[in-house]
Structure formats: structure tokens, C-alpha cells
């Protein structure tokens, strides 16, 4: 019992939470969470910071980056605004996410926004995505790294022969 930590529904933690045991968040946390165990953010849970854990299960709301040493699972009702990075990322139908998702071994690596990797992004999870959120995530991926370097040159309609004179005549 002593090695399960619960942040209750009415609790608000401001600051850093770290440790080597499992953590359940039913309340609100504004501050980084770094846990070497499983973190569960329940449907009432609200986290306004980066969360890193061995395994991460989200049913509630997170504004911040999620990183899992093993896996991150976004379940139905999860709302995430931020990047998700883990060897395995599962996004259930009904979970909403706005951010950059990266699966694979790089999940355990320190946070580095690999722009080139953006191309290889959401493979398997994208299929499961809610359609609305899929649009958002592709847009986010585009913003993150796939945007063309410079916009195409503006198209200027060529004036017809004699059109200049016509304009002049109109003005006069």
C-alpha cells in the first residue's frame, strides 16, 4: 500500500513529482512528473506539465509532453496537447491528441525534436486515430517538419496586349 501514490480528486500539486513507484493522478498536477513506474492519469486527472514514466496510461487531460520508457497508452476520453514519445504508443478510439507522436526505440532517448523523423511518423497509431484528431496530428506533423521551405512564387496574371492602354484610357 505504501508504494502506491495517489493524488486524490480534490488535490492540486504545484511542483515536481518524482520517484520510483506507481502513481495515480485523479486530481491536478502543475509541474513535471518523472516516475520510474507506471503513471495513470484518470478521467478526472488534469496534468499541465511534462510526464515521463516507464508506462503511462492516460484517460484524462494533459497539456505537456508524454514520454514512456516502455509504452504510452491513450485511452478513450484522453485529451493530450503535446508530443508523445515511447517505444510503443497506443491510441484508442475516442482519444484526442494534438502533437507529434514518435514510436520506436528513440522513445527512451532524451527529448530531441527530430525534424527529419517527422516524415516517418504516425504509422500504426494513425489508423486508430479519431478522424478529427487525425487531421490535427497530420497538421501538427506538417508544422513540425514537413512544410516546404519556401512558398511557391505568386502567380501574376499576364496582362493582355493593349490592356495597359485600356486601363490608362479608363483612368483618364
Amino acid at each position: 500500500m505504501a508504494d502506491v501514490t495517489v493524488i486524490g480528486r480534490g488535490a492540486h500539486v504545484t511542483g515536481r513529482v518524482e520517484g520510483a513507484v506507481d502513481l495515480e493522478i485523479h486530481g491536478r498536477v502543475d509541474g513535471d512528473v518523472a516516475i520510474e513506474g507506471e503513471v495513470t492519469i484518470s478521467a478526472q486527472g488534469l496534468v499541465g506539465a511534462n510526464v515521463s514514466a516507464r508506462r503511462l496510461v492516460v484517460q484524462g487531460a494533459v497539456r505537456g509532453d508524454l514520454s514512456g520508457e516502455e509504452a504510452v497508452r491513450l485511452e478513450e476520453g484522453a485529451r493530450v496537447v503535446g508530443d508523445v514519445k515511447a517505444p510503443r504508443v497506443a491510441i484508442a478510439p475516442g482519444a484526442l491528441i494534438k502533437g507529434f507522436v514518435q514510436t520506436g526505440d528513440a522513445g527512451a532517448a532524451p527529448r530531441a525534436r527530430a525534424h527529419s523523423a517527422a516524415r516517418a511518423v504516425p504509422k500504426a497509431p494513425a489508423r486508430e486515430l479519431h478522424t478529427a484528431s487525425a487531421d490535427k496530428s497530420t497538421r501538427a506533423a506538417t508544422l513540425a517538419g514537413m512544410a516546404p521551405k519556401r512558398p511557391p512564387a505568386p502567380v501574376v496574371p499576364a496582362l493582355k496586349k493593349g490592356a495597359k492602354g485600356a486601363l490608362k484610357r479608363k483612368a483618364g
Binding site: 500500500m1 505504501a2 508504494d3 501514490t5 515536481r16 513529482v17
Partner: peptide, 25 residues
């Protein structure tokens, strides 16, 4: 209790709650 800070957990900052708190950490 509704909020339990387990042994092995460190919280640096502020905790405020309208319920019970048990601290092992």
C-alpha cells in the same frame, strides 16, 4: 485517504487539497 504520497516519491512544490493526505514519502 484520497491522496497518498507513497514511499519513494518526492514532491517538490505545493500540495493543496480539500481531502485527506497521507504521506509515506
Amino acid at each position: 485517504a484520497s491522496t497518498v504520497i507513497g514511499a519513494g516519491i518526492t514532491i517538490e512544490g505545493e500540495i493543496s487539497t480539500d481531502e485527506d493526505v497521507v504521506i509515506h514519502g
